[in-house]
């Protein structure tokens, strides 16, 4: 539901990923991490929900 809400607000599908990996599933961890990295790379740098540091004159 959190994913649904964030994507409803405008976070691109693919930027937010969920998985369940046991500590014994090393290969699954590698696979998922690579998938996530690839899908986020494809989307490019985040555009929304970024807090800029206050600019000090």
């Amino acid at each position: 539901m959190l994913k649904g809400l964030l994507e409803h607000i405008g976070i691109e599908p693919g930027r937010l990923n969920f998985s369940w990996i046991s500590s014994a599933e090393a290969t699954k961890f590698v696979d998922v991490a690579q998938q996530v990295a690839a899908s986020v790379k494809a989307l490019g740098p985040a555009r929304y929900l970024i807090k800029k540091r206050a600019e000090v004159a």
Binding site: I9, G10, I11, P13, R47, Y48
Partner: peptide, 17 residues
């Protein structure tokens, strides 16, 4: 109204909210 927003692309959604 929710369905209307769901049909938008991410950029429009973000703009709307």
């Amino acid at each position: 109204d929710v369905k209307k927003i769901e049909a938008m692309d991410p950029e429009k959604k973000w703009g709307f909210f």
